[in-house]
Computed example of a mutant assay.
Amino acid sequence: MIPDTAELLVQAQHLSVERGGRTLLDSADLAVHAGEIVTLIGPNGAGKTTLVRTILQLMQHNRGKLYRKPGLRIGYMPQKLHIDPSLPLTVERFLTLGGATKAQAHKALERTGAEHLLKQPLQSLSGGETQRVLLARALLQQPELLVLDEPVQGVDVAGQAALYALINELRHELGCGVLLISHDLHLVMANTDTVVCLNGHVCCQGHPSQVTADPAYLELFGHRAEAQIALYTHHHDHAHDQCGEIDPEHSHHA
């Protein structure tokens, strides 16, 4: 649970984006506080990337208000990395291109469990290895806000769970907010504080337990939503004490 006193990092109010006579995003509201994980879900073309790009100030909005904490440090993890296969680029060189020292690059890789990849050619990495390197690159910014676009793209199921667990650990360690885009309903619901469901506009938002019961969510995701509710309920059949440990006195198991 995010404290009411947690610092507001970014907030979109009635944000609309139009391009070429088309409305890409219509009156969207979203807020991310320090220590909070907010996840954007929705079908392709729903406006998720548009909203994120607007928050990153890579796109201008046409209507509404956008607040960003003054001097906000953002670590951005793109969905895909496009590197020329003929370009000789090691992981270490890739991470130091932005001005980081070799020591800083090594420390960031160590935190994401990828320190053994330091001297590897970037093009030789697996999907999971690439994502951990990209996350390390985002950490080099000492971010107050991590923005992650499909962070488990191209990663196997076991690797996806491990990456989400790592993201969860990082938000506690750094006290940073996390804004991520995801298509994976199951892992999203188990690892987020607030879900924002987009389909050109905000269909519904709130705690995962609220969103999964919302008719707009059920209509948008259909059978996937029904299966997700069962999984979400199964994975939340216990309570936690104030330290985050499972509390046997207030837990029940199906």
Score class of each variant (00 low, 15 high):
residue 254 A to Q: 06
residue 236 H to E: 04
residue 22 R to G: 03
residue 239 A to D: 05
residue 229 I to V: 12
residue 30 L to H: 09
residue 84 D to G: 12
residue 128 G to K: 08
residue 47 G to F: 11
residue 245 E to A: 11
residue 124 S to P: 02
residue 213 A to R: 10
residue 210 Q to E: 14
residue 20 G to C: 01
residue 57 Q to A: 08
residue 93 R to E: 14
residue 69 K to A: 12
residue 244 G to W: 08
residue 183 H to S: 11
residue 232 Y to M: 11
residue 24 L to S: 08
residue 171 R to T: 15
residue 240 H to A: 09
residue 66 L to F: 07
residue 220 L to G: 10
residue 174 L to E: 04
residue 247 D to A: 10
residue 116 H to D: 12
residue 152 V to D: 15
residue 130 T to N: 04
residue 188 V to Y: 01
residue 141 Q to P: 00
residue 95 L to S: 01
residue 177 G to Y: 03
residue 102 K to S: 14
residue 24 L to N: 02
residue 113 G to P: 04
residue 180 L to K: 08
residue 116 H to Q: 13
residue 55 I to N: 00
residue 152 V to S: 15
residue 4 D to K: 14
residue 184 D to M: 03
residue 20 G to R: 09
residue 217 Y to K: 10
residue 221 F to L: 09
residue 123 Q to H: 12
residue 216 A to H: 13
residue 204 C to F: 02
residue 243 C to I: 04
residue 168 N to Q: 13
residue 75 G to E: 04
residue 189 M to R: 07
residue 58 L to Y: 05
residue 50 T to M: 11
residue 38 V to I: 14
residue 242 Q to S: 12
residue 51 L to C: 12
residue 76 Y to I: 01
residue 153 Q to M: 10
residue 195 V to F: 01
residue 98 G to I: 08
residue 249 E to I: 01
residue 88 P to F: 05
residue 181 I to W: 00
residue 189 M to S: 15
residue 104 Q to R: 13
residue 96 T to E: 07
residue 209 S to N: 11
residue 139 L to C: 06
residue 244 G to V: 12
residue 132 R to V: 09
residue 158 A to R: 15
residue 37 I to G: 00
residue 210 Q to H: 15
residue 198 L to E: 00
residue 153 Q to R: 08
residue 15 L to G: 04
residue 139 L to Y: 05
residue 71 G to N: 08
residue 152 V to T: 15
residue 79 Q to F: 08
residue 166 L to C: 09
residue 127 G to D: 09
residue 130 T to K: 15
residue 228 Q to H: 12
residue 197 C to R: 02
residue 42 G to S: 06
